[in-house]
Design a binder for these strands. Structure first.
Lengths: 240, 240
DNA sequence: CGTAATCTTGACCAACGTCAATGTTCGTGG
DNA sequence: CCACGAACATTGACGTTGGTCAAGATTACG
């Protein structure tokens, strides 16, 4: 199955020989498809499964006691979900599908065993994790120091750039299936103020988000405005 | 040297046998002591060294082109610095000493080699890294969703709790050698507004930060107010 | 004792949140 | 095909939170 995975052809993952691919294939339990809105992982539950996003968009988020929600990250095809399950411990965050989503379900215990058996594989995971930390740091800067408009711009272009590196966005346009409230919960603003920021960004022709259709006339200009450093290609991911 | 390290006696690290400790000892290059204000790591430089905080406080931060600064994390004794050097790649953030700091300097290449040789060790690193990610997520929630007072309270009690787990804070009081501006740069506020928040927290007897002396009369109450989940002890770190 | 850095506070202003009203899209049942 | 309702987008008016400016107080240190 993994041998023919469409995502592999996008050069999204570290080059692997046939044996490695087959080993990963052996960890694969099943393929899961869920409609938009489904809770894939619920905070506090002790899962033994790791997922790989295959298609669709999802968010990792945290719900506060007062009902407000912070989106921690947007999950795109190729991303790994719930890696904390490998190193035993309950997941602290929830994951919800934004669109229809399909995932590869991996056996956490087998994945753990594979890490112990193959240090190179474990180091790949560690590197992917360090990359994630880098992105998390950048988001921290965004939330702590950027204006509302710059935050929205940053959020949007970060996702656009991730899609582009995966060969899933080419020109100036790309789909953006988030509601305004989702954006607000990601960048720490209110839904209404996100609207104002979008209007401002459109007025400056930095980006145009109408409905679910995103247009970025000049990626470099938006990146400069939002303080986003466009990632050079070449970084690959650890798990198929 | 590491065999007698004072930090080891605090049960801060995973239990190791003598051979493991000696292996880590072999990676140790030197011991570095720097005065307050020193730049330990400079963003963009390609270091081949990893550090372990031995004594003192430091911050990991990012400087924006407009001059403002976001503190990403406070580094306390026992914390690992610049782990990105292990998996090759330039460090993206800077580290500066807040107080006089002393560090163990480890050879990044040897550390890398040790990860490849010992998968258990590599997995320990991965777990520490996943714990860090969890803390990063929590800080993201703080910046995105909490009020100014709650943010300051969160920031303070998180550090207090980390110190406590390391046996470096016991009663209600603990030293807190940050300037108001440092706190502001960490929680995404202005220096003046941090003052207002501190006054408010003092008025509610949630905490009292006067000068560099912190007093938390009721840790659980402050934690509840700030939405901080006090960590159960037991999590240990990977590198000595 | 003097200078520089930081703390602390008040007054005022800008950014962002809340409320409420209207428009738009889309799915559902008649 | 159309009527209806639900969810979401969009906008204006207004209130609150947090930033900026500026001044005096305190501390650290030579």
């Amino acid at each position: 199955l993994c041998r023919d995975c469409g995502l592999r052809r996008l050069r999204l993952f570290r080059p692997m020989n046939r044996r490695e691919v087959d080993q990963i294939s052996a960890m694969k339990r099943s393929h899961l498809s869920v409609p938009a809105g489904t809770d894939i992982v619920v905070a506090g539950e002790r899962g033994r499964q790791v997922y790989t996003m295959f298609e669709g968009w999802a968010v990792r988020y945290h719900q506060l006691p007062d009902g407000s929600r912070q989106i921690l990250d947007v999950l795109l095809p190729g991303d790994t979900v719930a890696l904390t399950a490998v190193v035993p411990g309950a997941t602290a965050h929830s994951v919800q599908a934004l669109t229809a989503v399909s995932l590869c379900v991996l056996d956490g215990r087998k994945l753990f065993a594979m890490c112990l058996a193959s240090p190179v594989f474990a180091m790949g995971l560690l590197r992917t994790q360090l990359d994630e930390e880098h992105r998390a740091d950048a988001r921290l800067v965004m939330l702590g120091r950027l204006s509302a408009e710059a935050r929205v711009g940053y959020f949007v272009i970060e996702i656009y750039d991730r899609l582009r590196r995966r060969g899933m966005a080419n020109g100036a346009a790309c789909p953006f299936p988030l509601r305004r409230l989702d954006i607000a919960d990601a960048v720490g603003l209110s839904r209404v103020h996100v609207m104002r920021a979008l209007r401002g960004l459109r007025a400056q022709t930095l980006m145009d988000l109408t409905g679910q259709d995103l247009i970025i006339p000049d990626v470099a200009r938006l990146a400069a405005y939002a303080g986003y450093a466009i990632e050079p290609p070449g970084r690959t991911r650890a798990i198929l």
